[in-house]
Design a protein around this nucleic acid. Sequence first.
DNA 1: ATTAGGG
DNA 2: CCCTAAT
Length: 677
Amino acid sequence: MVFQKRSSSEMECGGGQVAEMPRVPKSARGKRSVRRKEAQSPGQMMCAFDLLATVAGKLLDEGEGSLGNMSTGAPALSACAKDVRVKQEQCDEEMKHFKHEVTDQDSCNESAILPHNVLQRSMTHAPNEDPKAKSDAQEKESSMISCTKAELGCNFGVIADRWSPESVESGAFTGDAVASLMPTGTAGFHKIAPDMYNLLDPMDVDVKPPPLVSSDSTGEMPLYGDKIRRSISLPRGPKGAAGYVVDRDDDDDKSSGCTHPCTTTNRDFKPNCTAEHSRVRKLLTCKYRKVAPSRMHKSDLSYSDVERKPSFRNKKMHYTRQRTQRTTFKRRKLFDRHAVLASEFGRANGKGNTKVTGRNSHAASLEANKGTNSMPSNDCHVKLRIKSFKVPELLVEIPESATVGSLKKTVLEAVTAILGGGLRVGVLHHGKKVRDDSKTLMQAGIGQDDMLDNLGFSLEPNCTRNPSQVQAPEDISFLETIDTTEPLARIAPADSSSKHGEVDVSQELALTPLAMNYQGSDHDSVHSPVGFSSPEKASTNSRALVLVAPADPNAGAVVPANKSKRSPEQGQRRIRRPFSVAEVEALVLAVEKLGTGRWRDVKLRAFENAKHRTYVDLKDKWKTLVHTASISPQQRRGEPVPQELLDRVLAAQAYWSQQQAKLQPKTPPLAEARLLT
DNA sequence: ATTAGGG
DNA sequence: CCCTAAT
């Protein structure tokens, strides 16, 4: 069972160059696994802020070409001696592997066996001997790769825009990016593009347009301008493409931008909008469905709660329960989640994304004169002015052909729907939530004097929570929300809620498409992987616009209100970041070469720059891929993975399993013998 | 820090 | 994805 191993090996270590590379002792290996803990330093969870900080830092640190490179694309986050070392090491390892495996592999007809041999076709065979030629080849590869990335990432231009130093520094990711996103700025890459396509998705080439990669990937494929990653594969010339490396650090953030929700036909999520649901719900649900079908899968939904669940996810019981519930309350959760999402965003927005928000802030300004309703005589009327209310996240889908006017109308409808029944107002006084509705303003101590400064209003999602939980949503840290520092993604419901157990607060952001990226602060955190890799079906006619308005999760925008501290929800579950097809591709490629059981290497090889993908994640992903490949297509959920890749997954899995078995011929043989006997 | 598995 | 146990 040799399948394409050979090619892989060649690709990576093909040239004689590799052999010469110094071996790097394992001990010397750089430790770059990214740990969640790292990001969890008190008060700061890995989130938008971190991301921004990171990015900014890099830009600054690498000040060098960053700017220069900007034009080309993303800041070269990696590119360093370190990388070199690693690469060498990898090559080295690969060589070993190669030597190990090559034998039979040679005998094997790669083209026949490997599906992805298609890829190879596109690659030129590099001259093996001639050094010069070799280097040329490398260059070529580099180009190709960059191209690939370009193609993959739907929008280089966009990324570049977003990553412009200025924007980073200012912390404002302009919404403009969105516009720019659309056009895939692969200007110079077209020539190669075709090949790349093949590379990526041989099967679909004909049908698929340029963006092979999911939006998600887009982000990730930063364009490393000059600094194109010379990944391991590069060193050798020939089939360079093979060494596709997924660099998505910021991945999401960047990525998020690009995509159109390719409404891939994938399985549509079918929410059952029943009468019981509030208008809002219906609206939302339906919208979602239209907008981000892929996201609406059960899995997504289901995860939502779990993921976002408050800290206590400790117990298994808890988990189990949650899961059960997921199933049971899918629909409802969806809604709830929705609400929650909105809130989260709101919170985030509330904080600091002023700038960022630009486009996002579709805050509805409401001028409210809340007088103590005409009370008789002695009662003084209190005049309140609410500068603005922020509306929770809204998802709006509208055809590109639609007019601006219709867009406005659509948004209005969405807003109206939400206001109509999806929200309720919370009142804060001196930072404290005023719960007793029966109290008079006077009793509550709300007077004209300091009122403006101490009174705040918030919009709260008025969703139905888990029945079991009596607690009102409001209980959830109402005030806390305001903390500016809070990276929204992380926001978690107050402890209380968690205690009560299942608060449905699922805050998964996954649903949010495009816009998210620009959420200033929250940047990193969430952006859902908007993309889908299937460029193919991207329904062109309708794009989804996501309006993420700042709404406050638990507390909406509060006028003055104080900014209280936020509970350090430290143990937040990492946000779910579905693997894009591009990532899967990279993973498969890496595993084909390295085998299973070497996740750290796989990580280094293909996801070195994807800080959020740990080797454990990769291992898990492989696990799921194997499973996915084993089940019927109808059973699969989420963004569909090309069958071609799945086939490769199975092939690789089988191959490596066998290899592993060979190494440990304990009982297997015996068993067979017994049977035979 | 990694790997392997179960949840 | 998380968590744990075993390396």
